[in-house]
Amino acid sequence: MPSLLAPQRARPNHLPALDGVRLLAVGLVILHHITSGSQNSFFLHLIGVQRGNGLGPPLFFVLSGALLTTVINDLRDTENRYRTFMLRRVLRIFPLYFGYLLVAFVITFAVTGTPPRNLWAYALFSQNIFLQAAEQTGSKLEMYHLWTIAVQDQFYLLWPLLLWRCKTIRQMRMLCCAGIAGSILSRVLMVVLGLPTDLLIRSLPAVSACMCLGGLLALERSDRTWLSPFLLKAFVPLSILCGIWMWRGLDFTSPLGSLAGYQLVGLTCAAFITAAMHPVTLVARVLSSGVIASGGRKLAFGLYMWHPCLLDFCEHHLPFESKIVRMAIFLTVAILLADLSYRFYEKPFLRMKTGKPRQMPPGNPQTA
């Protein structure tokens, strides 16, 4: 995912700092789940007061768009490019995702005597579409976080086919801008038509602006425009505005939050990732440090997948009154489980050969 999902192989275009962004995004999701609604301190209030899905998912989506666009362009001049692209995504996503669903099935059946309902929605990566079915599984493992996987997989299916039709970088930029405009328009229509608020934060049309914005960041690496300097200069002002918006308690499902707040957060995430893509910045130096980058590359996906069920267990079933103790146990076990998952379960799939792409006649997009 993206964002959540580390690349299968090291690539010349790979930036370690983006692995650090991935780990930070997972950390924000976990922190939001731990502190949601808290008003005990400025920091916890700032992160936890916002309803919806916090800062983590928009950061995931912008990062996912940047990484995905880079990978797609790397495969542009290879044979069987779509097959190669999808096979790599399958090897990265499917083992842990469907492994989690299998564990949910086994535990639910063992505890209740009946299997979870409506797992077809998750198996088809459509839980963000069939919202009611996805919420009524009866699973003993938390499933609420899997909607981001569905959104990104839907984007994975479409984005390569659209991007490869573009012959120039200018056309790719126009495609990204059209995606952003279409996403904002879809939000306007959802608000006007009074559609379920969950669609504002979980449907592909509503969140694709962030991924298309990430696509623009990827294109900046090969053909720089005014966008990168603008985002670097605007990072601090955007962060301040984003902090004020979060502090005021506006959420992504309100009309103002959907039409203005979400775009503000997405733009702030883009500015942050732009800073991470420039090695001379403090953000890039911190995020590319060994432990952080390695954690994002190896542990982020496992942390994201397993943390909700571990958090639920530590919050409600440990015999300790101190929340600090329970959260320390939660974080320790979550990191250990993610590490074991990567070493002994995910890594063997990542080592599978997908075949070396054969180069076709050069057809790299031109700048104009």
Rank of each mutant, 00 (worst) to 15 (best):
M1T: 08
L4G: 01
P12K: 13
L15M: 08
L15H: 02
D19S: 02
G20Y: 01
R22I: 04
R22W: 00
V26L: 00
G27R: 04
I30F: 12
L31P: 06
H32S: 12
T35M: 11
G37Y: 09
S41G: 09
L46T: 08
I47N: 07
Q50L: 00
R51G: 15
G52E: 02
G54D: 01
G54V: 08
V62C: 04
V62M: 05
L63R: 01
S64C: 10
L67G: 01
V71D: 03
D74T: 04
L75C: 05
E79F: 09
R89Q: 11
R92D: 05
L96Y: 04
L96Q: 13
Y97K: 03
G99C: 06
L102V: 13
V103H: 06
F105T: 15
I107R: 12
T108W: 11
T108P: 14
F109L: 14
V111Y: 08
P115H: 00
W120M: 07
A123K: 05
F125S: 10
Q132N: 15
A133G: 06
G138Y: 07
G138N: 07
S139Y: 10
M143Q: 04
L146D: 10
W147G: 12
Q152L: 12
Q154W: 11
Y156W: 15
Y156D: 12
R170E: 06
C177Q: 03
A178W: 14
I180L: 10
I184Y: 09
L185K: 01
V188M: 11
M190L: 15
V191N: 13
L193R: 15
G194A: 11
T197E: 13
T197V: 14
A209P: 06
A209L: 10
G215K: 03
G215H: 04
L216F: 03
A218W: 06
L219N: 05
R224L: 00
W226M: 13
F230A: 15
L231Q: 05
L232I: 11
P237T: 06
P237Y: 02
L238G: 02
L241G: 15
C242L: 10
W245Q: 05
W247R: 04
G249H: 00
G249N: 04
G249D: 02
L250W: 10
S258C: 14
L267N: 06
A270M: 01
A271W: 10
I273V: 07
T281F: 04
S288N: 01
V291G: 00
S294E: 11
G295K: 09
K298V: 03
G302Q: 12
Y304D: 03
L310R: 08
L311Y: 14
E315G: 08
H316F: 04
L318T: 07
P319F: 07
E321H: 10
I324E: 12
V325C: 07
I329Q: 06
L331E: 03
I335P: 03
Y342N: 14
E346P: 13
P357C: 00
P362A: 14
G363Q: 09
A368W: 13
A368M: 09
